[in-house]
Simulated scan of single mutants.
Amino acid sequence: MTDWRMPAEWERHDRTWMAWPSSGYTLGATVEEADDARRTWAAVARAVARFEPVTMVVTPPDVGVAREHLGTGSEHEIDIVEADLDDAWMRDIGPTFVIADGRLGGVDWVFNGWGGQEWASWSRDAQVAGLVTDVAGATHLPSPIVNEGGGFHVDGQGTVLLTETVQLDPGRNPGATKESIEAELAARLGVTTAIWLPRGLTRDYDEFGTRGHIDIVACFSEPGVVLLHWQDDPEHPDHEVSREAEAVLLAATDAKGDPLRVVRVPAPRTLRDDEGPVDWSYINHLVCNDGVVACVFDDPRDEEALAVLREAYPDREVVGVDARPLFDRGGGIHCITQQQPAI
């Protein structure tokens, strides 16, 4: 049996994969909303391409408009692979890349629209992980569980962060237990220690949420160090979520048996939008080769949060991209990207 391992995000990448917004709520209902989505996806792609190559999966009718928005002159290439799509959240629909003995593998989780949400369609997105795995020349590793890449974070040394409301969601894996999920993650990702947070951010449980993805709550920035979304305003419901998560993390140990150091990353000062309490989060960043592409929100806390990220990743350039159009659609920068590790 091959001992596959998911590298930590800060390990070297061969490239980052993305998917182009082409239909539905992700693209928007008006010309203006569609332009906003395309500009934002392109801005993230160009920011990532400062540090490493990007491959964008694009529906065939949209190749021309994608090339127009992505432009030319990036430090690294942005190339296009054509395929049919329902949505554009590559972290969730794409494969999770793993490595073993100089080989690349692509874990193909079952994707069912974040637990079979009524508004979601996924017949085409469910094929994307296999396609990307094939194009990348990786070994196809199908998994029997419903899972999404935004639902876990690893330290690359055997520890994984999860939330109890994603992998144990009856809409995803009815009857699953922590033990059964941990066994599958051990086989696919090479993890031996799981740290389960009770829940995700409040807004993520609204109609268009993921029901608790970890990648807007907490992430490893190095072995033994977890960055935590910290809502310090008691007027926001995530005030309690942050404290609950911190208590679990401080009581936990990693795969080496060591306690974790928790670094609070301040939540934006903005508390609400027209839909209710926001889930804007600086945790939802992508670590690239020599860089970090981070969410900003034209918020007074942007610079403070970027300073925390610069301290967490001292050898990398931290670049901010306005992520409000992404969060309006239910995600962030980490949600629309998926790293392919170097082997």
Rank of each mutant, 00 (worst) to 15 (best):
T163F: 10
I195M: 11
D36C: 08
T26L: 15
G24W: 13
R50A: 15
A186Y: 02
D36W: 01
E32G: 11
D232V: 01
P198N: 02
I181Q: 04
W280H: 15
D238N: 11
V166R: 10
I333F: 06
Y25E: 14
D328N: 13
G331Q: 13
M56L: 06
W122R: 09
D3T: 14
V296G: 06
P60E: 13
D101F: 08
E240I: 07
D87G: 10
E11V: 05
P259K: 09
G130D: 07
P259Y: 13
L168C: 11
L104M: 03
E68M: 01
A294V: 09
G331W: 09
G113N: 00
R12N: 08
R39C: 10
D298N: 15
L70C: 03
V262I: 14
G171D: 13
A294E: 09
T2W: 04
A83K: 04
G175V: 06
A88I: 08
V278G: 07
Y205R: 06
P300T: 11
R188P: 07
W20I: 08
F297R: 02
R124W: 12
Y205M: 07
A136V: 08
I195H: 13
V63Q: 03
E244V: 06
N147M: 15
G291T: 07
V58T: 01
G105K: 00
V321F: 05
T96D: 15
H69I: 00
R12I: 01
V241E: 02
P325T: 02
W41A: 05
R199A: 15
P95M: 08
G190T: 00
C219P: 02
R12D: 12
P237C: 02
P198K: 08
E303Q: 12
H76L: 08
G190R: 01
P268E: 03
H236P: 03
A138E: 09
S242F: 02
F327V: 14
S242W: 04
D155T: 06
H229T: 02
S281M: 02
P174D: 00
A312P: 01
W196Q: 05
V44E: 10
D204H: 12
V107A: 04
V107T: 11
C219Y: 04
P266R: 08
P268V: 02
G276W: 04
W17Q: 07
G73R: 03
K256V: 04
R324L: 04
W20R: 09
I216V: 14
H153L: 08
P234G: 06
R5A: 14
T30E: 13
W89H: 14
L185C: 05
A43L: 06
R172L: 10
A129N: 08
H236V: 11
F208V: 07
R261I: 07
L189R: 11
I195N: 10
L168H: 13
A42T: 07
W196S: 01
T253W: 03
P61E: 09
A252K: 06
G24I: 06
L201M: 10
A100R: 13
V319H: 11
G94W: 03
V146P: 06
E77C: 03
E246G: 05
L168A: 11
C219M: 12
A120Q: 14
V319S: 10
D155Y: 04
L228P: 05
E77A: 15
W196P: 09
D3W: 02
P325D: 04
T159I: 03
G212M: 01
G28D: 02
F111T: 00
R5I: 14
L27D: 02
T59L: 03
N147D: 08
A194N: 10
